[in-house]
């Protein structure tokens, strides 16, 4: 669709690799990656504050953790997105997911997908994080249930498990 007055494209076909699967979708410029992912069925990506405060919508974009509510879908064109589902799931859980379960790192669960992806980005950078590193890594993720303590211990346990596995997360 092209605007008659300006001749500019109002919508664009974007190609986003979500968890390894190529997805094509035609969207206008003002749609966010969060909205598009949920429309594609990726409802594991949660919508919280929609202003970059809570981190519930965090995803990995080319390996870097971003708030999908502040990322325009056009900016994800020809790039790779990983949601928490791409990290692992029942039967093939990632050590972070296992540790969150074992340590009680999730209560209501709404912040968990974002928490786990921010933790994944942290451990990719710093395989053996200090408590301060973990706090800084999760500084954009709000949890109103756990008081964070169990989330921190889950991440320390996952970091140890990953190091024993050989360092690749």
């Amino acid at each position: 669709m092209t605007d008659k007055k300006t001749g500019m494209a109002r919508e664009k076909l974007v190609n986003i690799h979500v968890n390894g699967t190529a997805c094509e979708i035609t969207v206008p410029a003002w749609r966010t990656l969060l909205e598009v992912l949920r429309e594609l069925g990726h409802v594991e990506v949660k919508c919280g504050c929609e202003k970059g405060d809570c981190g519930a919508c965090a995803v990995l974009l080319d390996g870097e953790v971003v708030d999908s509510c502040l990322t325009l879908a056009w900016n994800a064109d020809r790039r790779s997105v990983m949601t928490v589902q791409g990290l692992g799931g029942p039967g093939k859980a990632h050590p972070l997911q296992t540790a969150f379960i074992e340590h009680g790192g999730a209560q209501c669960g709404y912040c968990t997908p974002g928490m786990i992806l921010a933790a994944k980005a942290l451990l990719d950078d710093i395989p053996n994080p200090s408590l301060d590193d973990i706090k800084r890594g999760l500084s954009g993720n709000l949890c109103r249930c756990t008081g964070y303590t169990r989330i921190f211990s889950a991440i320390r346990a996952a970091a140890q498990a990953l190091r024993q596995e050989g360092g690749t997360s």
Partner: peptide
Amino acid sequence: AKVFAGTMIRNA
């Protein structure tokens, strides 16, 4: 930079 907003905001 260490205390600027949160991780995702610092990436953007």
